[in-house]
């Protein structure tokens, strides 16, 4: 039982952390960021290289968050800012960005990097070992969701950005600088991707294709979650985590993976707006009733 719980925590953390940056950018800006995996990869590189240079891991992780955030800001100012509102063009451009980043890293650092060792060791429960760091990842995912919730509900930025998300025209006419909001949002999304990369860097092989493994789960989580960058991923991370843990434990990894995709297709068919849409519908009904 604690085995299954541990697996669920692993899956949930992986889904949430891989999706969170993408969810923020897609939810707030309607930009489909195909370079999301490469932002994650960049975070992993910064963290790994910094730690190798003697900086403590915690500080390196912080450095990746800031570094990828700044990189995101640059990408936004140079490229994305010209594409606000053009969802489908963003597919092409961010794909171009991902090609450039992946090959650029390959040229700069070669096809692989020496990986860090997972810190913190393991704890023994019921005669079985569990990685403490991975349990911490689960806690981090939840803390991150709470922090984002606070950012988007309790701050002026959050208020403005939610206004821009619902109706950019009206928000602008009320004096909200939507362009600045979008820039900030994009760089937060990038910084979150950087965090994910840095957090997973010590547990995985670091290479230019590092981001590839994150792309599919992150898209599925965002699709199932829908537009709301907070409610969406938390609910879909939970549901998908249960589904993939269950299938995986019963029939093996292949079905765990296939299950994710099938659930995604079914969810879009039944409720195109994902869990966020469902929650909104319910809350509207509740306030009316």
């Amino acid at each position: 039982m604690e085995d299954l719980l541990y697996q669920f925590m692993n899956n949930f953390a992986f889904l949430i952390l891989s999706a969170i940056g993408l969810a923020v950018i897609f939810g707030m800006m309607k930009i489909i960021n195909l370079a999301h995996g490469e932002f994650i990869m960049l975070g992993a590189y910064i963290a790994t290289l910094a730690t190798k240079a003697g900086i403590p891991l915690l500080l390196s992780i912080l450095l990746s968050v800031v570094g990828v955030g700044i990189f995101g800001l640059i990408v936004d100012r140079l490229i994305i800012s010209r594409l606000y509102g053009r969802t489908l063009d963003s597919v092409v451009v961010t794909w171009g960005v991902s090609l450039v980043m992946q090959q650029g890293i390959l040229i700069l650092f070669g096809p692989s990097l020496e990986t860090l060792s997972t810190p913190l060791g393991s704890i023994s429960i019921g005669g079985s070992d569990y990685s403490l760091y991975r349990i911490l990842l689960f806690v981090t995912a939840i803390v991150l969701l709470i922090l984002l919730y606070l950012l988007f509900t309790k701050t002026t930025f959050g208020l403005h950005s939610r206004a821009a998300m619902q109706n950019a025209e009206i928000a602008r006419s009320m004096g909200v600088n939507t362009n600045r909001i979008y820039s900030f949002t994009f760089s937060i999304g990038a910084a979150l991707a950087g965090l994910t990369g840095a957090l997973y860097a010590p547990t995985m092989a670091v290479s230019p294709t590092f981001g590839g493994g994150f792309l599919m789960p992150s898209f599925v989580t965002v699709i199932v979650g829908g537009a709301n960058p907070l409610i969406g991923p938390s609910l879909s991370g939970g549901v998908l985590g249960v589904v993939s843990t269950g299938l995986d434990a019963t029939w093996g990894t292949f079905f765990g993976r296939l299950g994710l995709l099938v659930v995604a297709i079914l969810v879009i068919r039944i409720m195109p707006l994902g869990f966020s849409g469902l929650v909104e519908k319910l809350s509207v009904r509740k306030s009316r009733g």
Partner: peptide, 19 residues
């Protein structure tokens, strides 16, 4: 014998089965 799809990078369930 257990087969892992290409591209999978998270192994917690496999590890628990082996143990």
């Amino acid at each position: 014998e257990e087969f892992i799809p290409l591209g999978v990078s998270q192994f917690s369930s496999t590890i628990s089965r082996i143990k």
